[in-house]
Computed example of a mutant assay.
Amino acid sequence: MIRKLSILVLSLAALAPAFAMDAARSEAKQVIALQNGETLYVFKDGLMAKESKFGSVTHLSKGQVVQTADGKSITTMGNEVARLSSLLNKGHGN
């Protein structure tokens, strides 16, 4: 009984980051993989935010050129650090 309960708890804990990522991905119009393992989120209003390969939100300068995983260049618009941080942390609060 205790073993089944601990398996259930571990399974639910593993799903928590997936739900947080779903919030960010569903809010974004487009999610683009970048060359260095980072992820660029393009929101419906055209503004953008960048997530590092470690899952933290990183600063994005307006007009910065980033390389996609397939080698294309994108010029960024905006720096939506707070928006992406909020979406990634959704569901992790007490």
Score class of each variant (00 low, 15 high):
residue 50 K to S: 00
residue 54 F to C: 02
residue 41 Y to A: 01
residue 20 A to H: 04
residue 62 K to F: 09
residue 32 I to P: 00
residue 45 D to F: 08
residue 46 G to F: 02
residue 67 Q to R: 15
residue 39 T to D: 00
residue 64 Q to I: 09
residue 21 M to P: 01
residue 30 Q to E: 15
residue 26 S to F: 04
residue 66 V to G: 06
residue 56 S to R: 09
residue 39 T to H: 02
residue 68 T to C: 10
residue 50 K to W: 00
residue 39 T to C: 03
residue 77 M to Y: 12
residue 75 T to W: 05
residue 73 S to R: 14
residue 37 G to Y: 10
residue 51 E to G: 06
residue 70 D to P: 06
residue 71 G to P: 07
residue 33 A to I: 10
residue 60 L to W: 01
residue 77 M to F: 13
residue 67 Q to G: 07
residue 76 T to W: 02
residue 70 D to G: 09
residue 72 K to G: 03
residue 28 A to F: 05
residue 55 G to K: 07
residue 42 V to M: 08
residue 44 K to N: 15
residue 49 A to I: 03
residue 31 V to A: 08
residue 20 A to K: 04
residue 60 L to C: 03
residue 61 S to F: 12
residue 57 V to E: 00
residue 62 K to A: 14
residue 72 K to C: 03
residue 64 Q to R: 13
residue 35 Q to L: 07
residue 38 E to T: 08
residue 39 T to G: 02
residue 76 T to D: 03
residue 23 A to L: 04
residue 63 G to R: 10
residue 39 T to M: 04
residue 40 L to G: 01
residue 54 F to R: 12
residue 70 D to W: 09
residue 48 M to R: 03
residue 58 T to Y: 00
residue 27 E to T: 10
residue 50 K to T: 00
residue 27 E to R: 11
residue 62 K to V: 12
residue 27 E to P: 04
residue 52 S to M: 04
residue 64 Q to D: 13
residue 57 V to D: 00
residue 40 L to D: 00
residue 63 G to F: 06
residue 46 G to P: 00
residue 36 N to V: 07
residue 76 T to N: 05
residue 20 A to G: 15
residue 75 T to V: 13
residue 76 T to I: 04
residue 66 V to C: 08
residue 34 L to Q: 02
residue 54 F to P: 00
residue 35 Q to F: 08
residue 52 S to V: 04
residue 35 Q to R: 13
residue 68 T to Q: 08
residue 75 T to L: 07
residue 31 V to S: 07
residue 44 K to T: 15
residue 70 D to A: 13
residue 55 G to C: 06
residue 57 V to F: 01
residue 31 V to E: 05
residue 56 S to F: 09
residue 67 Q to L: 14
residue 75 T to H: 05
residue 75 T to M: 11
residue 68 T to F: 08
residue 32 I to E: 01
residue 69 A to E: 12
residue 24 A to W: 02
residue 34 L to C: 05
residue 67 Q to D: 12
residue 36 N to F: 08
residue 73 S to V: 06
residue 44 K to P: 11
residue 63 G to I: 06
residue 42 V to P: 01
residue 53 K to S: 13
residue 33 A to L: 13
residue 26 S to W: 03
residue 61 S to E: 15
residue 19 F to S: 11
residue 26 S to R: 06
residue 73 S to P: 05
residue 55 G to A: 07
residue 42 V to H: 04
residue 41 Y to K: 03
residue 59 H to G: 09
residue 20 A to I: 05
residue 22 D to G: 11
residue 45 D to K: 07
residue 39 T to S: 06
residue 64 Q to C: 10
residue 76 T to V: 06
residue 51 E to S: 10
residue 26 S to T: 10
residue 77 M to G: 04
residue 18 A to D: 10
residue 44 K to E: 15
residue 73 S to M: 11
residue 26 S to P: 00
residue 39 T to A: 02
residue 22 D to F: 11
residue 54 F to N: 12
residue 63 G to T: 08
residue 38 E to Y: 07
residue 77 M to H: 11
residue 54 F to Q: 14
residue 56 S to W: 06
residue 42 V to E: 10
